[in-house]
Nucleic acid binder design. Structure first.
Lengths: 346, 346
DNA sequence: TTGAAAGCGCTAACAA
DNA sequence: TTGTTAGCGCTTTCAA
């Protein structure tokens, strides 16, 4: 009944059915213009009648293209975060935005986007998958300074583009937001609100993005004459934000402004601040980073530094396509401008 | 410098290098036992020396296997949820758990898991990808009653397994949790706590899982002699939970127990209840569903009905593998038992 | 145990 | 404009 023990129809069979050569059917399928309209019609009927679907393996064996690219989220090793990798990844709106942005440019081109999560146990598999020519290239979300994956992929000749400044120099393109400029906007705002004790909750400091934001914070508060640089390291999760906020409150009870390195942690921090009896923004003003959907769900809605993630992902896709088409061309990176979005929290 | 204009080494080249035939190299690669240990050594050296990696396309052209299976998350059409599909999907810990569970069984077998999101714009692409034989089968997360995808895939002969009871009868296996039993446990607990006005916040009622949970709720409260069945429809997101809780509070200010159809909504509901001055669990007891990571992040920590998602996903993978190996065999479905996890909220 | 040879289904020169 | 033909890189009989 399931009846698929029989093989799917081949080009050859369609050709026989239509009474033409394989080459002609191939041309019709690939939209080559030099085919007699009448014949094309005949072939199309034959395709419909036989239910023909091209065999991808056969095609890519000769074209050396697969028309699909991978989105790889990588984590070099278990750093004892409270939340495991998969949970963190699938709980943060970030990946959804990246996917959306990449799809936007890939889909019209008929290119498939396949998603891979490369935590240490999966790492080898993903590497093999990419090497075996299953995809034409990879968009790499690699956030840790010491992640060897980007370097390895480049060495293997897999075209790729990174989602942010790589921790170690890698001969490949990347896309990033001007982290420091973003933080600067946030701190300027807090200072403009008259806050005198401005602190920050950082991301994991083994991530370039987190380092950049902390460095930006240092520079920004210094510019406003604040000599102390109170910071607590978080992990970019809601729970981490809560923990960090508690630590911060204990060490700096007089804090009146907080720049939190992402929205998820800001949400957690907001909860803790308010449970501790601080009014936001009156007692403590809070600004996040990302402008993800989480920012809108905060109570009160979160002021935040907007990162145009979708656009950035689209650009990554473009860069990758270029890289695939012209492997010789030298890497090019694109830096986007952040924007301060003001809501109720600061 | 990037130097990959040159083609990767082929089996043939490795064979020449090692001074043996292609067949022998192939045997070594595929772990065939009948190869002289000495020769095997030679070949392995040759493989290492040349940096050989099998060409997947060529292999699967002959074996008709790809050793990869797809995890497809499907949504039939835009139902005007507040939160868009990708955001919802990548914000809910559910998918991470499914991935983890499936990987657990697939990885040791050397099978790749590739993730696809099939919302309406991507749908056609994903279908094509699956039909073209890019994967050996698919794990399908399809939550809507009227999603045609499962039926279409089955018709196309793509082996698949569903993540819950399908809305329409489909000739394929699925895995599910005993929804009604789970809800029953929750309601029994609330009733046991002496709650007299027990309400529920449901998932989208065009999802079988949401329907089952509501039906289970009906039956359970009736069993405790509560004739009224107060419910508000939610959307399985945090924000949706907040909105639903507000509605509920307005229509049933005397509510003292709430069963919320998933943890994310329960988190939102908790916030709203508390902002409205209700103490949890004293004034209102709340129980969620899933036992996802969100349950632990709630304030107070959420009592919830545990669904063994990882295990269920592992079983899906097993079922799919069986289905791939023995296409003739008739579909088999597996129902898991839920478990009530008591924390502070009820 | 090893090798020779025949394809898997497709695209792309090249000829006609 | 169409058809013929030669592979793409691999696995797998079948002989040796």
């Amino acid at each position: 009944m399931t009846g698929s023990d029989t093989r799917p129809p081949t080009l050859e069979q369609v050709a026989n059915y239509a009474g033409v050569s394989r080459a002609t059917v191939s041309r019709v399928i690939n939209g080559v213009q030099t085919v007699d309209p009448e014949l094309r019609r005949t072939v199309e009927r034959a395709i419909a009648a036989t239910g023909y679907v091209p065999n991808l393996a056969a095609r890519s064996l000769v074209t050396r293209r697969t028309d699909s690219i991978a989105l790889v989220v990588s984590e070099p090793e278990n750093r004892g975060y409270e939340t495991p990798f998969l949970t963190r990844t699938f709980t943060d709106p970030y990946l959804g935005r990246v996917t959306a942005g990449a799809q936007e440019v890939l889909r019209p081109l008929g290119i498939h986007l396949v998603i891979f999560l490369a935590d240490p146990p999966a790492r080898e598999h993903v590497m093999r998958y990419l090497r075996q020519g299953h995809v034409d290239g990879a968009l790499l979300i690699s956030s840790h300074v010491d992640d060897p994956l980007p370097g390895q992929l480049v060495d293997l000749g897999v075209p790729c583009v990174l989602s942010c400044r790589p921790g170690q120099p890698v001969h490949t393109s990347y896309v990033d937001v001007d982290q420091r400029a973003g933080v600067r906007m946030a701190v300027d705002r807090l200072a403009g609100l008259g806050r005198r004790c401005i602190a920050t909750i950082t991301g994991p400091l083994d991530m370039p993005a987190a380092q950049d934001r902390l460095a930006g914070f240092r520079a920004a508060v210094a510019a406003h004459g604040q000599t102390d640089v109170p910071y607590v390291e978080g992990d970019f999760t809601r729970g981490g934000g809560e923990r960090a906020a508690r630590t911060l409150l204990a060490s700096h009870p007089d804090v009146d402004g907080v720049f939190v390195a992402n929205d998820l942690m800001a949400d957690g921090a907001l909860r803790v601040l308010q449970e501790a009896g601080r009014r936001v923004p009156d007692d403590v003003a809070v600004i996040g980073f990302d402008d993800s959907t989480a920012a809108l769900e905060c109570h009160p809605p979160l002021s935040t530094v907007r990162q145009p993630v979708e656009e950035m992902a689209g650009e990554m896709a473009q860069l990758l396509l270029t890289r695939i088409r012209e492997p010789g061309r030298s890497p090019r990176s694109v830096i986007f401008n952040p924007e301060l979005i003001l809501r109720a929290s600061a």
